[in-house]
């Protein structure tokens, strides 16, 4: 009798520990594993920035007839976590392009573009009629830049993380900040009394 019980227990343990399952989830589901900067925060920030920008009256006015050219400078990470701020600006840029209101030049690909253009011009491999010319890039009109700041507080049983994302759009010619927006996020977590 006892032996049977042990066998059943053993089998149950093996079943419990033995199977690993892979599942697909909805990437927009709210993620609250920790109070650290996470995917939901990234999406919240990107959405808030884009919505705010596209509904800002002067920006709507500006984009009625034409699609201004922008470039993303960078977003400084001033938090005490290793946050990939480039990923936030990537999302914002993608959404802005998708809106059909703006066009972007990409500063991160400049070196590779130059290599390619030099290859087309100098290598002798490319039909000169189809070789793209150097010096025809369009100069951007505006620069997007900003900062992610954070205040992290922690005591015995609670952790409180506050994030503030600021984004500015600066007119390169006049130096005027044409648009700016802020998104704040606060996350708090209390430690449970019991756990594994």
């Amino acid at each position: 009798m006892a032996r049977t019980a042990i066998l059943i227990l053993l089998a149950a343990t093996l079943t419990l520990t033995g199977c690993t399952r892979v599942q697909y989830g909805d990437p927009t589901d709210v993620e609250t594993v920790t109070v650290d900067f996470g995917s939901t925060d990234l999406q919240m920030i990107a959405n808030a920035m884009v919505d705010d920008m596209l509904t800002f009256p002067p920006v709507r006015e500006m984009t009625r007839e034409r699609r201004p050219v922008l470039f993303v400078d960078r977003v400084q990470n001033r938090t005490s976590e290793h946050v990939d701020t480039e990923s936030i600006t990537d999302s914002i840029r993608t959404k802005l392009i998708q809106s059909g209101k703006f066009r972007f030049v990409d500063m991160t690909s400049v070196d590779r573009v130059r290599d390619q253009l030099e290859y087309q011009r100098d290598s002798g491999m490319v039909d000169p009629d189809t070789a793209r010319e150097m010096g025809r890039h369009i100069g951007s009109e505006f620069m997007l830049y900003g900062a992610l700041t954070g205040i992290a507080k922690r005591d015995g049983s609670t952790r409180d993380n506050y994030y503030k994302f600021t984004l500015n759009m600066l007119n390169l010619e006049t130096g005027i900040i044409e648009w700016a927006s802020e998104k704040e996020i606060r996350k708090t977590r209390s430690r449970g009394l019991f756990g594994l």
Binding site: T34, R154, S157, R159, R189, R191, G192, L193, F194, G195, L196
Partner: peptide, 8 residues
């Protein structure tokens, strides 16, 4: 830091 106060 995130651990429960009393852990099994």
């Amino acid at each position: 830091d995130d651990e429960a106060l009393i852990r099994l």
